[in-house]
């Protein structure tokens, strides 16, 4: 579901995940809705997966629509680390 090198953005509500998906897809960014991996805890059962290369653009788009509170995790060597 999540490969090494991928990022996962998690949100605090399903509504916000849906909003994030809409705005990111409108920007034609390669994102996918996935269930939140068990290593991560979220108020919402859904997350958005994307490659690390898109991280800056995704943060920019999310910030523009008021979704700057999303946590973005990076998977490397099988473990997740929070990207500040």
């Amino acid at each position: 579901m999540v490969d090494d090198g991928d990022c996962v953005a998690i949100f605090h509500s399903i509504h916000r995940v849906m909003k994030a998906e809409k705005v990111l897809k409108a920007e034609k960014l390669a994102v996918l809705l996935i269930p939140v991996p068990r290593q991560l805890s979220s108020d919402c059962g859904l997350a958005i997966r994307f490659p690390l290369s898109l991280r800056n653009k995704i943060v920019e788009v999310l910030t523009d629509v008021g979704l700057e509170g999303a946590e973005i995790w990076h998977k490397q060597d099988g473990t997740y680390s929070l990207i500040p």
Binding site: H12, S13, I14, H15, R16, S41, S42, D43, C44, G45
Partner: peptide
């Protein structure tokens, strides 16, 4: 609410 299932409290965020 389909989310926040570990907690016995409702989520803080609207609309959920």
């Amino acid at each position: 609410t389909g989310a926040n299932s570990h907690s016995d409290l409702p989520p803080e965020e609207l609309p959920e």
